[in-house]
Nucleic acid binder design. Structure first.
Length: 298
DNA sequence: AGTAGCACCTGATTGC
DNA sequence: TGCAATCAGGTGCTAC
């Protein structure tokens, strides 16, 4: 469920609570929440006793830089992952709590819970690896490296170091529809199903338009639209329809009130009044206005 | 090489 | 009321 604005809200919350703290204890409550590590015990051994130096994000991928920066505690929220911060005496773990970390800072202790109903999310201990374009890392990162599992992920739409001309050329290559291309995290990361539909609506591009048929100008306007909509969503604390997405303090964002297309199939287009359409494209539910977003327009 | 399809899960909602 | 089908914000692997 979480896309770039939601993951960035989580990153900001983590940064405000865990930077400079030390990982004292690790309780894995569901083994499969640790994917790459050889075992839950190996994960715990890798991260225990280490200090958290930074909280970094690229697209929807999030990681805590440990000690010297050669190791990361990486996390992906999948469809339903959350982090929740509790004080020295945390409540009993939530039913979907997959891991509980105990952290210490200046003699005080607190808990960090990883909660994930659908279990598509994960935690891992990973080496940091250099990437060809790792000039400045992702948002929040001063480091020239990313966790191994993020090496194939493109810079995200809000990253100042995004190579605009390069990604627009990559977008327009191949045979896929533009909706599928927007969701390709190896080109521009961070755009998920909600913000893909919203950006296409803003830029007046039909989701099934062959990406190769977009003009450079239209592709550029679409990239700008992804940045605008995700920037505004971030300012509103992200999008949330229910208790499945909350920040580290358990609070929901408000951007769902500002969605123009996503989830509004059958409702009037906020721009022209025409009934919005809904269909499945590339296995994902897709929403658009058949009048504002004409196939082949622009 | 690029792309489509499916697998991975749990839970809420909808329809019969 | 019960039960099955459908849907949900993501990613990675496999087979074309």
């Amino acid at each position: 469920m979480p896309e770039l604005p939601e993951v960035e809200s989580v990153r900001l919350g983590l940064a405000s609570h865990v930077l400079g703290s030390r990982i004292e204890a690790v309780e894995i409550r569901r083994d499969s929440c640790v994917r790459r590590a050889a075992s839950p015990e190996a994960f715990a051994a890798d991260v225990s006793g280490r200090t958290i130096d930074a909280a970094v994000r690229r697209g929807k991928f999030l990681w805590l830089v440990l000690d010297g920066g050669e190791l990361a505690l990486s996390a992906h929220l999948g469809m339903s992952g959350q982090f929740r911060v509790h004080g020295a005496e945390p409540p009993p773990p939530h039913r979907h709590c997959r891991a509980r970390l105990t952290l210490s800072v200046r003699g005080g202790f607190f808990s960090l819970d990883f909660i994930d109903q659908r279990t598509f999310g994960y935690l891992d201990a990973e080496p940091m690896v250099a990437t060809p374009d790792a000039v400045a890392g992702g948002l929040g990162s001063p480091l020239p490296a990313v966790p191994a599992s993020v090496a194939h992920i493109g810079r995200d739409a809000l990253d100042p170091a995004l190579r605009r001309a390069t990604v627009l050329a990559q977008w327009r290559r191949g045979t896929r529809g533009i909706k599928q291309v927007l969701l390709d995290q190896t080109l521009v990361s961070g755009i998920g199903n909600i913000y893909a539909d919203e950006a296409l609506w803003r830029a007046r591009v039909h989701p099934a338009t062959p990406a190769s048929g977009l003009s450079g100008r239209a592709a550029g306007a679409l990239l700008d639209a992804t940045r605008e909509v995700m920037g505004q969503a971030l300012a509103a604390g992200g999008t949330s329809f229910d208790a499945l997405y909350v920040n580290v303090n358990g609070e929901s964002g408000y951007f769902d009130r500002e969605l123009n297309a996503y989830g509004r199939g059958g409702e009037p287009c906020p721009r022209c009044g025409r009934r919005l359409e809904r269909a499945v494209m590339g296995g994902r539910s897709t929403h658009w206005c058949p009048r504002c977003q004409r196939a082949g327009a622009r």
